[in-house]
Design a protein around this nucleic acid. Structure first.
Lengths: 141, 141
DNA sequence: ATCATTGTGTAATGATATAACATGTGTAGT
DNA sequence: ACTACACATGTTATATCATTACACAATGAT
């Protein structure tokens, strides 16, 4: 029984299709836009997407962006080291970057521990404008 | 024209009703459950709640919890110092606590700045089990 | 062979959020 | 007073996100 270390060969057809759709998009997608892109492959209902997403998130191969109600493929090519703790999300172009930072994760963990809070999952999402989009705005002005 | 430093006297009737509902609940509420609680006061449609919430969030008097799709009244009694940067959310009892921590906010800001990202808003939500609920589980076992 | 587990397909529904348009209300400028 | 403007409101309809419930199929363990 495999516990971790999932790779693509462990995935079902539906999970693979959903993961591929997300990977190829290069950015966040809603469950319903994944569904639309997979109609040709036989997808008919949201549940087919949500079920695949649940597993992929569980495996750490996809992340859910709470502030967007959307999903992104993990950028880590091999499926170890899914230790992302934060995301930047550009409100201009939608680009998402993953950040790993021990200062923050350690600090969050100790803030929790200090108050007796058993931390299960951290959501850290930074909304703003990426470097490229800031330059793009300057050009227009 | 007042720019900041809103207090209750600046609020419209609808905004006051929504804020009171949230304050009295002591925890997070969805927009629709706020709506249900305000039917007696004449509320009929979700938009009445969402519009009030938009303003209250803008004023810093209410926070949106992204991972819950819900809203809480800011715990700060006077409406200065809405500098909360993080929340703990207990998955057992639903209790929400606000955390202000310069280590984290400074670090998030500098991670953003380092990559040329213009940070507008940080979402930091810690999901887990609070101290009380951990004890409650022990009793049952 | 049977049973449990897991994945799948499908329809219906629930939950969250916004668009579009009409109406009211206070206030500043004339 | 009248107008123009900004802003809050009311209402209907619709868009978007997510789950429940039920039936069936494939796999693997006993």
């Amino acid at each position: 029984m495999t516990v971790h270390a999932h790779d693509e060969s462990d995935l079902t057809r539906n999970q693979l299709l959903v993961l591929d759709t997300l990977s190829q998009s290069g950015g966040p997608l809603s469950a319903y836009s994944i569904l639309d892109q997979l109609r040709d492959q036989g997808f008919r209902a949201p549940l087919q997407v949500y079920r695949a997403l649940d597993k992929l998130v569980e495996f750490g191969m996809v992340h859910r962006l709470e502030s967007l109600n959307a999903f992104v493929a993990c950028r880590h090519p091999s499926c170890d080291a899914h230790e992302t703790i934060a995301f930047t999300i550009c409100d201009g172009c939608g680009q998402v970057s993953e950040i790993s930072d021990d200062t923050i994760s350690d600090r969050l963990q100790s803030l929790a521990t200090d108050t007796g809070f058993a931390l299960k999952k951290s959501t850290v999402e930074l909304r703003g404008i990426c470097h490229k989009c800031q330059n793009a705005v300057r050009k227009v002005m």
